[in-house]
């Protein structure tokens, strides 16, 4: 999982690490101090929008989840492995920059992943993450953020288990669900199946 995570996310990992390095090195110049201030202030948001949101949304959008979740590794351990590696990486970076912000980073990542799972489109998930995260970030302390982040993570895992189990769910006559995996499309595609559950029961 470490290799896979590195391989798929190295660009964003390296870019964020560079950002963190800029924020940590003592430059002793007015301009760079200000940029450091901005990075410190926005780091958890960067984690939320650029690490969390695309994690699941991209798999859905590019339909690579067919491939990713069809391997020996079950979807759940795929997700837990990736999250563990990424959480370790951004926690380390946040600790370097501003130790008090680890809770916010965790919350941001959890919000991003969950909105990616719900929205299933990268750009839309990023927008939703930014909105929700800013609202939560202003109102919560670091500890409450970490707790809420953990709770959201549990919700994500539960939802993901459900999604992965009921995956390739098509229409009643066996044709696959149409492309465009928005919730409305899926709802329309699976409505007849769900109605048939009631009829059978």
């Amino acid at each position: 999982m470490i290799w896979l995570t590195w391989r798929q996310h190295r660009a964003v990992l390296v870019t964020t690490a560079v950002l963190a390095a800029v924020a940590v090195v003592p430059w002793a110049s007015g301009w760079l101090d200000l940029i450091q201030e901005v990075i410190r202030w926005a780091f958890a948001g960067v984690v939320a929008v650029f690490w969390g949101a695309p994690l699941l949304a991209r798999e859905f959008e590019e339909r690579t989840y067919f491939l990713a979740w069809g391997q020996d590794v079950s979807p759940l351990s795929w997700f837990l492995g990736k999250s563990l590696v990424l959480c370790g990486a951004f926690s380390l970076l946040t600790l370097l920059i501003e130790p008090g912000q680890v809770g916010y980073s965790l919350l941001g990542f959890a919000v991003g992943v969950l909105s990616g799972l719900i929205v299933r489109r990268t750009v839309a998930a990023m927008a939703a993450t930014a909105l929700v995260f800013v609202a939560l970030r202003i109102n919560l302390g670091p500890v409450a953020s970490a707790v809420l982040g953990a709770a959201l993570f549990v919700v994500t895992v539960t939802m993901l288990r459900h999604v992965a189990r009921t995956r390739p769910r098509g229409t009643a006559d066996g044709t696959p669900a149409p492309a465009g995996f928005g919730w409305w499309t899926r709802f329309r595609a699976t409505r007849r199946v769900r109605l048939s559950w009631f009829r059978d029961a």
């Binding site: 660009a11 964003v12 870019t15 200000l34 940029i35 901005v38 650029f50 695309p54 990268t122 750009v123 990023m126």
Partner: peptide, 18 residues
């Protein structure tokens, strides 16, 4: 690449705006 473009846009905009 959408994500890359978004990240660069954000960074450049914040820089110019500052």
């Amino acid at each position: 690449h959408t994500l890359t473009a978004m990240a660069f846009t954000l960074a450049a905009y914040v820089g110019v705006r500052m």
